[in-house]
Amino acid sequence: MFSIFGVPAPLLFGQLLLGLINGGFYAMLSLGLAVIFGMLNIINFAHGAMFMMGAFVAWMLLNYLGVNYWFALILTPLIVGLFGVVLEKTVISRLYKLDHLYGLLLTFGLALVIEGLFRNEYGSSGMPYQIPTLLSGAVNLGFMFLPVYRGWVIVAALVVCLATWGLIEKTKLGSLLRAATENPALVQAFGVNVPRLVTLTFAGGVALAAFAGVLAAPIYSVNPNMGSNFINTVFAVVVIGGMGSIFGAIVSGFGLGVIEGLTKVFYPQASDTVIFVVMVLVLLTRPAGLFGKAA
């Protein structure tokens, strides 16, 4: 047993691991928020509810239909993404001509409705979701025991974040997306179906949240409040990273997760507030966010 800065190494690495996992969720959620914001100019307050829905849909697939984790991981983002398409087409698309604040209010209302309905049906106590057998157990890394599932979550989150970044920065679809973010009217004039692009963007962001929800299901208990617990912190992450940059959302998500984890080791009382303190410091020094352009 060795220690670092007077802290036993297993404790330090354990919290670092937890921090990376939380950071993965922060990154995936703030990435979705940033993509949606860029295209729709809406802060999706229902993003936490979508995350929660992801976990619940995976739970329902398993318990009602017997669909296992791996299929749920693919099916759930599709199902919740489809729900996102319906939401965008029926409700959210009516807001584009209004003040942006109405988008925030509307999605806040949506979040209340969705969470309230799930709470009515399933209560607030939460339900367990079994870790798939392939990913159960732990490996000895020499300096710590790593539960396989936790390692998998970090890898999966990282891969999905990088894939999203690649999709937006390196593909034809991504270039259309970025162009439509800059100037929708011009892109429309080139014959691109911008409204469809907007719908797809919303669905994509929401699907990302749902994917995160499935990943989270075996770690946290599946309960109606799991989204709103996360989303307020994610907003702070978004303010810190700045909305402008996909890469910034990923880096600040993981980075802040790690900072939170380290705070749990060295000064546990502040672990819940440290991200907000960082936000204040960023606001004082770089009001546009670490990776944001001045807005």
Binding site: V91, L105, L110, L112, V113, G116, L117, R119
Partner: peptide, 20 residues
């Protein structure tokens, strides 16, 4: 119980969409 939250959410949506 939670119907309060649902109703509040619906009022939000209704206010924003039709009753600003």
């Amino acid at each position: 119980g939670a119907w309060v939250t649902v109703t509040q959410g619906l009022i939000f949506i209704a206010c924003v969409l039709a009753f600003r």
